[in-house]
Simulated scan of single mutants.
Amino acid sequence: MQHERIKGRGSALNLEGRYIQRRHEAEDDGWFVDGEPASPPRTTVTDERARSIVSHNQSPDLGFTASINPYRGCEHGCSYCYARPSHSYLELSPGLDFETKLYAKTNAAELLRAELARPGYVVSPIALGANTDPYQPIEKRYRITRQILEVLHETRHPVSIVTKNAMVERDLDLLAPMARDNLAKVYLSVTTLDNRLAARMEPRASAPYRKIEALRRLRDAGVPTGVMFAPVIPMINDMELEAVVEAAADAGARSAGYVMLRLPHELKDLFRDWLALHFPDRAAHVMSLIRQSRGGKDYDADFATRQSGTGVFAQLAARRFRLAVRKAGFGEHGRNLDLDTTKFVKPRKPSPQGELFL
Rank of each mutant, 00 (worst) to 15 (best):
M1W: 03
Q2V: 13
K7C: 09
G10K: 00
L13P: 00
N14V: 05
G17H: 01
H24P: 01
D29P: 01
G30E: 11
T46E: 15
R51A: 14
S52A: 15
S52N: 11
H56V: 15
D61G: 00
A66W: 02
S88V: 10
E99V: 10
N107Y: 05
L112N: 05
V122I: 12
V122S: 11
V122Q: 14
V123Q: 01
L128A: 05
L128V: 00
A130P: 13
P137A: 01
K140I: 15
R143V: 05
I144Y: 06
I148Y: 02
L149S: 07
V151H: 02
V151K: 04
R156M: 03
P158I: 11
I161M: 08
V162H: 03
K164T: 09
K164D: 11
A166F: 13
P177S: 04
L183K: 14
A184G: 12
Y187N: 14
T191K: 09
D194H: 04
M201C: 04
E202M: 05
S206H: 03
Y209F: 14
I212V: 15
A214M: 06
A214Q: 02
R219M: 13
G222M: 03
N237P: 13
D238H: 05
E242T: 14
V244N: 07
V245K: 00
A247N: 08
A248P: 06
A251L: 02
R254M: 04
A256G: 06
V259C: 11
L261A: 05
L270H: 07
F279N: 04
L289N: 04
T305K: 13
T310H: 02
G311M: 09
F313A: 13
A317H: 02
A317C: 09
F321N: 01
A324H: 01
V325W: 00
A328V: 08
V345W: 02
P347D: 11
R348A: 10
K349T: 15
S351Q: 10
F357V: 15
